[in-house]
Each structure stands twice: as structure tokens, then as C-alpha cells.
Nucleic acid binder design. Structure first.
Lengths: 254, 254
DNA sequence: ACTTGTGAACAGATTCACAGCA
DNA sequence: TGCTGTGAATCTGTTCACAAGT
């Protein structure tokens, strides 16, 4: 099918596995919490527990970044925070635009986790003229007509699409044409983009369907299991993620 | 580490791979669109294109469900829609509660994709007394005090957490104690749950960080690549998902 | 004594390529 | 002939278990 390989084969400096990249933000969050509590060092076991993974995986992940720990001691919290931030590219500023300021777009604009990590909402864009001029989260909403100019003036390379499904591809095309090379898509549609552009999707409905699948399994099994065990409590487990695949789900605004 | 296996080892009737389960909703969406256009049959190649995967993967996925296609012809759209719906458990009604009616919670409540797939928002719950009594998307917001009663009265087994991070674990514990066995978590925290409870997380900040990582790579490579190739257009590719791991990201309300 | 870092074994998912059937 | 279904090969990610270092 289609064009070619899934991702850039190019100069791949050190080649960190995709699965590892997806966990780095998790480690970073846990480390930041430790840092705020002024914890100086942490063992792989402790940090793994805080991040909800197992320690072998964590150590393997870190080994791709380099040898940042000290045997017999653990990892220096501050140092690791810095190294992971740098690896993720969070030491620089990433201006982001959000297109589609419905319920969801507004929620995203208000989301505090942005600024804290080097992401800055440079502009909000919506096709509804009634919204133009209004402010959401202190940021003025601008009209879609000016999309290209906004992207270029702000040097935006990351776009968030929170429009209805029907508008998503069109918005995507314009974003890409204007120079955006990474897109986070909340509309429940498959976006088609040129090579070299990354798309990640977040789809609520898909997540719920996956839960329903497992839920159904549970219900069916209950009757089949030897012991009549109800849904009552048991030993705790860290919420290990289900989907082994990178597939994510999507939310759509009103 | 910790308690035990990641997921139920039990009677696993036919054992559909997790990666396949995560794609079924994608196929279902594409099939539903075809169904609405009254397309009677579809080939693996066509359907794969519509779902944004390659056809070999799609055929392998379907092979886990059974032999629902016809060689030389393709798949019957209506029949597949039914089979996948059944497999995902969407032929039954799933009452869902949303806890935390901030910006995000409201967006979720208004999300149309719910009802269309057997999910019904049975109740909205928030800790803020000022919200109690108000309606969002036509559904009255109820106070957290009544959480247990609401769960039980409505036979809810799926809960959506859209509270601030600080409240998430506590809400989670109460949901689980009241009988919820599947949780969709939008709060940027690792939830700890008893065995037998499924948690999926959606984390905006993580998704953005993953994009930033790749974005940074691109920028660095540009200088390093022999051809000075700009970010201009190229051949189209279907937006193949990045993260091979199930890790998903999280959004947090104001 | 303790904890990292990692080769090697394992498990799971994807892709290939073709036999089997309409 | 055309397209599905699937074994076999490959690739990616996880886990084990221990050597190496402090």
C-alpha cells in the first residue's frame, strides 16, 4: 500500500525505540514530582513504581539514553529531568495552534499542562465568525481565513485539530501547506498527510470501545469461571496499559 | 514486579490480540461510513485504505474473528459491521458516568460519538456544589456524595475520570468500590486499581511531548541530510500511528 | 551490599508471499 | 482471474538474570 516505510529511515542518530519515547513523558512526570519534593536520587524500582511500569523496562529505556545512573545508588533526579527534557525537545519553546474552538478546543486551551512543558498556545483558530475576537483562556480566537498567516508569523510547527470530523482533512491540508509538520488530531477521522508529517490521534470513542470489549469478556467469563468470584477487591496492580499498539482514540467537539 | 500478570489469563475464549482489538473500532468506523453510502461489499485493500492501515494487517486481524470474507470478492459490509460490533460488545447498552464536569468533562458530555455506539451517559458527577442541579448537554450534574448510589442504580460498569489530577485516585477508588470495572482516565496521573479492573488513559501532554520528540529530530536532520530538502510536499502516506506501545496520553480540565 | 546496565531468551505484532477458493 | 486466509519470516518490544561497578 501507498508510499513507503512508516517513518523516516534517515540519519537516525541513536535510534531510541518508539515504545521508549512514548514512556519518557511518563518518567518525566514522575521525576518532576520527585524534584518538587526535593528528592535527590531515586532507584529504578521506586521510579518505576511511580510511573506505573516495571523496573526492568525502565532501566532498559534509560539505557537507550545513555548511562545516567550510578550503580548501587540510583539516578540523580535533577540530572535525569534535564536529560529526558532535552531528549524530548522540551528545552525549547514549541508554539502550538489549536484549530476548532468548540467544547473540546476550549478545554484544551484551558489545559494547564501545556505551558509547564515548553508548549505555548500561540493562537486559537475557528471557522465561526461569531467566535472571532472573543477570548478563551485569555487567548483571542482568530478566524480560519488567517490560518496560514498565523502559522507563519508564529513559526508554528505543531497543530492541534479539534474540529468536527468533516472539517479535519481540510484543516489538516492547510496546516501542512502552511508549514506544520506535526499534528495532534482529535477528530474521529483518518488524516492523510504527506511524507515527513507526523500525526497522532486521540479518539475517545475508540478507547471506550476497547474498554467495552474487555468489559464484555469479563461478564462472559464470570459465568464460565470455576470459582464464582465476583468483581470484588483483590491485590492492587499498577494500571498497566492495554493497547500494545500505538493506536490512540479521538474526541470530537459538539 | 508487583502483583501479577498484566491481564486476565483466564478462559480467553478465542484470544484476539490486543493490537487487533485496538484496530477493530477503526474498521468499524470505516465500515459504518460505507454502510451509510449503501456500499454492499468491500475488498481488504479498499477498507484498509479507508481505515489507514495496510491490507495484510487488516486481513490478519479479521482472520482472528473468523472467515467472514469471500475469496475473489471481498467482505460484506453489513455483515462485518454486525460481527465487529458484536465482538466489541457494542450490541449491548453501556451506561457510562463522567466524573469531573470541567471544560473537558463538558466536552465529553456533549460528544456525539457516544450514543451512536451503544454508550449512554447515565450521569454527570462533580464535587462542586455550584454545579449540582445544572444541566450539561441535557444531563443534570449530580454531586459526588451520591456517586455510589448513582453507579448502583444505573448498573454502571464504565467510568470516565475528567477531574484534576489530585482528585483522580480518590474518585477512582470510589468508582471501583461501587462496582465500576473499566475506567477511562483523562487525569494526568497513574491510577492504581485492583486486579480485574481495566484502566485506559488519555493524556494530551504526553502526545504533545511525543510529537515534540519527532519534531526535534526532523529539525536536527534537515541540516544533516545530504539533500537540503525542505518540509515541502511529497507523496501522501496514510497517517500510520507512531506509538507501538499502548501508552496513551491524558488531558486535564481547568 | 546494593543497584545499574545489558546480553540473551522470550513474546507479541507486522509483513511477506503464496496456497486455496470463488 | 482476483481476493481472501494464513503459515513462515521478520521485526519490535519485554522480561530475565547476572555481570559490572560503586
Amino acid at each position: 500500500m501507498a508510499t513507503g516505510r512508516t517513518h523516516r529511515p534517515a540519519t537516525r542518530s541513536r535510534g531510541i525505540p518508539e515504545a521508549t519515547v512514548a514512556r519518557l513523558p511518563l518518567y518525566l512526570r514522575a521525576l518532576t514530582a520527585l524534584s518538587e519534593r526535593s528528592v535527590p536520587t531515586v532507584s529504578s524500582e521506586e521510579l518505576a513504581a511511580a510511573a506505573g511500569v516495571n523496573s526492568a523496562k525502565l532501566r532498559k529505556d534509560f539505557s537507550y539514553l545513555g548511562s545516567y545512573g550510578t550503580r548501587g545508588v540510583g539516578y540523580d533526579v535533577e540530572y535525569l529531568v534535564y536529560q529526558i527534557s532535552r531528549e524530548l525537545g522540551l528545552t525549547q519553546d514549541w508554539p502550538v495552534v489549536i484549530v476548532g474552538i468548540g467544547n473540546l478546543g476550549a478545554a484544551l486551551a484551558n489545559y494547564g499542562g501545556f505551558a509547564s512543558r515548553g508548549f505555548r498556545v500561540a493562537a486559537l483558530i475557528d471557522a465561526d465568525p461569531a467566535l472571532s475576537g472573543r477570548s478563551v483562556a485569555g487567548i483571542p480566537v482568530q478566524h480560519t481565513d488567517d490560518l496560514e498567516k498565523i502559522i507563519q508569523d508564529n513559526g508554528v510547527s505543531i497543530g492541534v485539530i479539534a474540529t468536527p470530523a468533516g472539517a479535519a482533512q481540510q484543516v489538516c491540508d492547510r496546516l501542512v501547506a502552511a508549514g506544520v509538520t506535526s499534528i495532534l488530531n482529535f477528530a474521529p477521522t483518518v488524516l492523510s498527510v504527506p511524507d515527513g508529517v507526523d500525526v497522532r490521534k486521540v479518539d475517545l470513542s475508540i478507547e471506550l470501545q476497547i474498554l467495552a470489549f474487555h468489559e464484555q469478556r469479563k461478564a462472559g467469563e464470570e459465568a464460565a469461571t470455576p470459582d464464582g468470584g465476583g468483581p470484588a477487591a483483590g491485590p492492587r496492580k499498577e494500571s498497566a496499559d492495554k493497547g500494545p499498539d500505538g493506536d490512540v482514540p479521538a474526541v470530537m467537539p459538539a
